[in-house]
Design a protein around this nucleic acid. Sequence first.
DNA 1: GTCTATATCAGGATAGAC
DNA 2: GTCTATCCTGATATAGAC
Lengths: 221, 221
Amino acid sequence: METESDQVDKYGIPIIPAAVNVSQQKRESIIDAAVTEFLREGYTAASVDAIATRAGVSKPTIYKHFGSKERLFLAVIGGILPATYADLEPCNSTIADAPDLRAALVSLTGDWARLLLREDIMTLRRLVIGEIDRFPQLGNLWYQVTYDMNNRPLVEAFTILHERGALNVPDAALAVQQLVAITVGVLQLVRTFQPSAAISDAELGRTIASGVDTFLARYAM
Amino acid sequence: METESDQVDKYGIPIIPAAVNVSQQKRESIIDAAVTEFLREGYTAASVDAIATRAGVSKPTIYKHFGSKERLFLAVIGGILPATYADLEPCNSTIADAPDLRAALVSLTGDWARLLLREDIMTLRRLVIGEIDRFPQLGNLWYQVTYDMNNRPLVEAFTILHERGALNVPDAALAVQQLVAITVGVLQLVRTFQPSAAISDAELGRTIASGVDTFLARYAM
DNA sequence: GTCTATATCAGGATAGAC
DNA sequence: GTCTATCCTGATATAGAC
């Protein structure tokens, strides 16, 4: 099974030592091919053969680089999770100092929703959820990444607004959970089970705005 | 592949003709064994061999009854979904006539949460989500079942309360989505990615109550 | 109707040449 | 470091005896 060293990072994702120059290209093409195959087929149904063919390398090359199918899967999925969610972070900075809080929250959660409802991200999300019993590390990583990149900055902003008297949120962490659930979560639930159900931009805007209004009905001063 | 007739119901779930007396017992034991194996391993990794062994029958018996692994999976999962969610329905009837609406909503969403967070139901949910790209019928079925058994009765109750002037919900369907998301959804999100993270009954009650309060802050008259 | 036994094929992983 | 060729196991599905 695992003949390579089992070095893992703090999330339990294996650390694959970086290779040099020439083989680095092959490594990248393996990763690209693996992402495609895993997203399309799932972990078990995806075959290392197909990944090798798609990447234009042979199977032993994959095993030299990643050691096993499990390690390849963890390295690949663990690699794209933070990269995917990094796109969410820039939106956060302006909340605490926004002149119009409602408009800022609508804009922020709307941006999140449009990104998180993208088909490739929904597919990745379904894959991770489906493999969580096999790879609990991915669940922890997902939770940590989404919390660090989304919830945490909002919690800090709400805490500031609470001290400033602009919001009344004694429990900022719970309030953020509620805001995310009532805006993005409502839409995500539909798309999770019905991938082909298109959501018009008008409906998205309407749902997001109504969610923010419900949130502010409780927490605005 | 599919040598049997492809009769399906309105959800796209194959209709497996009922067998008689003797073999009916074998069929049931196959279904039980299949549920266990599919929930434990997922669709692809579960083997018909293992199901046959667990059920105490031979492989050809399974193929005589269900035709293929895909049809077995759809029949089994499509069968337990409605049965699982049927437990949610009885809670609904009292909302429209409850003397204390807040208490009734807290009780209702609390009951839903305690049921839906059960480990076996969460596992089933993860399985369905992970296999949705392969079996879109299950997504439609899931959505339909949860809507019929949960959302629809609540929408009807809210409509009555709106006409009676006890609530102000111009868009009852959206309001129900928000209520579910802000109570059950908040907890489900955590448990989806962290199966082992236990949620104390106190924390569950606190989260549910706060969700209902946020909901009522917007919609109560 | 149900079994034993088997056909057929693809999976992950590796030995050894270059 | 990378490939060709291969090992071994386990998969779905079926033929034919009882």
